[in-house]
């Protein structure tokens, strides 16, 4: 694994403890066709307030890695710490919100009801539930849609509602597994822009799985390039782009340079023919 930081921004001196740290992570699934190594010797540190994208072809273990961080999957070797705890402790202390590829809203609950779901489970008071639901719906630009039902909303709006649901209990970490993968490009651009604004306002640490190079480069402060068989990190790129990013930053030379390096990293990882 090479981890040069040629594009390092203004260098984090005396850095505080990382929010998420993975050391020597190995994960082997036992399948009917024998063991499959999903992750091999994965090392990564994510600082508070980072926006980290995991990019790579399918089968590179990016989703698996995110699930390990979330404590939904357990490594067979190495360790991962989240907020200084094990991933399971972090999950139990509700340290993160998780957004899946599908919005997965309950059809029998209104949008507000769906956003309220984690709050009900976590035992927030009625008044606080109400307050938080309103706040996060505003945060994702869905104020006034609380009484609607999922089927009345477009796919992009549903995914925004699912982000609001992940934000509702105000965890410091937001883990997103290809949240915009099923949406068309125009909607996706719009949501990317909104996500950046949301990130700037809330200062959350975000882990974001994607297979789109422009999306990864546009959103991230740190891009983790992964490759398959076995799933491993081939490159970690610190983005030189400023945190303030209008959509047309994607036409600047800096942006294209980062995108180029991501593409190179992806190509280098493809040691097999396809």
């Amino acid at each position: 694994m090479k981890q040069e930081k040629i594009l390092c921004s203004d260098g984090a001196a005396d850095a505080p403890a990382p929010v998420i740290a993975a050391r020597g992570l190995d994960l082997t699934f036992q399948t009917g066709d024998g063991p499959v190594q999903a992750l091999k010797d994965v090392n990564l540190e994510i600082e508070k307030g980072d926006f980290v994208s995991f990019i790579g072809p399918s089968g590179c273990g990016k989703t698996t890695f995110l699930r390990v961080i979330a404590g939904l999957e357990h490594p067979t070797g190495g360790a991962v710490s989240v907020n200084g705890m094990t991933s399971d402790e972090a999950r139990r202390s509700r340290a993160y919100g998780y957004v899946f590829q599908a919005a997965g809203l309950y059809p029998w609950r209104s949008i507000a009801g769906n956003v309220r779901l984690p709050l009900e489970i976590m035992g927030f008071s009625r008044a606080e539930q109400q307050e938080r639901v309103e706040k996060v719906l505003q945060l994702v630009d869905l104020a006034g849609f609380g009484k609607k039902f999922p089927w009345q909303l477009s796919g992009g709006m549903q995914q925004r509602a699912s982000i609001a649901r992940a934000l509702a209990f105000d965890a410091d970490i937001l883990l997103m597994d290809e949240p915009f993968g099923a949406l068309d490009e125009i909607v996706r651009d719009h949501l990317n822009e909104q996500l950046l604004a949301l990130w700037a306002r809330t200062g959350k640490t975000i882990g974001f799985v994607t297979h789109s190079i422009p999306e990864a480069v546009y959103l991230s402060t740190k891009i983790v390039v992964m490759s398959p068989r076995p799933g491993r990190i081939t490159d970690v790129i610190e983005s030189p782009l400023p945190r303030e990013r209008p959509l047309d930053i994607r036409d600047t030379p800096e942006f294209l340079e980062v995108a180029h390096r991501v593409r190179q990293g992806l190509r280098a990882g493809h040691a097999y023919d396809d």
């Binding site: 979330a70 939904l72 899946f100 997965g104």
Partner: peptide
């Protein structure tokens, strides 16, 4: 995915059943 979502909330099995 639905079950994982509730797991990320650390929901109990009773909560998973009812909700």
């Amino acid at each position: 995915m639905q079950l994982d979502l509730l797991k990320t909330y650390n929901a109990s099995s009773v909560q998973t059943l009812w909700k």
